[in-house]
């Protein structure tokens, strides 16, 4: 464990808590893409199946359980409890365009052709693009609430910090995983345009609004 990874995990956790808290306190999931949340649920489920098969550390296991529980809770709030506030007219990204290629790529490019390994690989590929329905929704409505922007920023920072973690691990431990690194770069790049808007608008107290 190094500082980049720890900060990355904290940022990831913070993003999830910001989102859950926003939905719970406002009793509304307006502006949030349920499709992105479903994809993240699928990402955590397929990646953390190894909770049963391999033990890394108490920290690792606890975080996995927390991510799974928080993800399912978010999906429950969006699709059951506060279903009436879900803005599905604007959440129109076709997720099969992400899931099908992620499945295909996981079958083609993986470390080992075994069920748990393929599922892990699928989760890495899918995670890299899972935010697209949310970004699509923001671009469709042309704006995002500040709290939604904070959520997206924390989520983007998480993978950015993981990139620093991978550079550090390559240098300090001779450890690297090309699948995770390439997908992580793609994932971080997808947030770049948003980072720019966040820094130039939201941090200066303005609402995140896209030019018409």
């Amino acid at each position: 464990m190094n500082i980049f990874r720890l900060l990355g995990d904290i940022s990831h956790l913070l993003a999830i808590i910001i989102l859950l808290r926003k939905i719970w306190m406002s009793r509304s999931c307006a502006g949030i893409s349920g499709k992105s949340q479903l994809l993240f649920g699928l990402v955590y489920t397929t990646r953390y199946l190894d909770l049963i098969t391999s033990y890394i550390s108490l920290y690792n296991s606890v975080m996995k359980v927390v991510f799974l529980a928080a993800s399912y809770a978010t999906i429950y709030l969006m699709y059951v409890k506060f279903k009436a506030t879900y803005d599905h007219n604007h959440d129109t990204f076709r997720i099969e365009f992400l899931v099908v290629p992620a499945v295909a790529l996981a079958l083609l490019i993986n470390h080992d052709f075994q069920v748990v390994e393929i599922l892990w690989t699928f989760s890495i590929y899918l995670e890299s693009v899972a935010i697209l329905p949310q970004l699509f929704m923001v671009s469709k409505t042309g704006e995002a609430e500040s709290i939604t922007s904070h959520y997206l920023f924390a989520l983007g920072v998480y993978r950015g910090l993981y990139l620093l973690n991978w550079i550090y691990r390559f240098w300090a431990e001779d450890h690297y995983d090309l699948i995770a690194i390439v997908a992580g770069v793609v994932q971080t790049v997808l947030y770049c345009d948003f980072f720019y808007l966040y820094i130039t608008k939201v941090l200066r107290g303005k609402k995140l609004q896209l030019p018409a």
Partner: peptide, 10 residues
Amino acid sequence: TTEAPEHDEL
């Protein structure tokens, strides 16, 4: 297929 590193990250 390459050698799989241990998946010790989240």
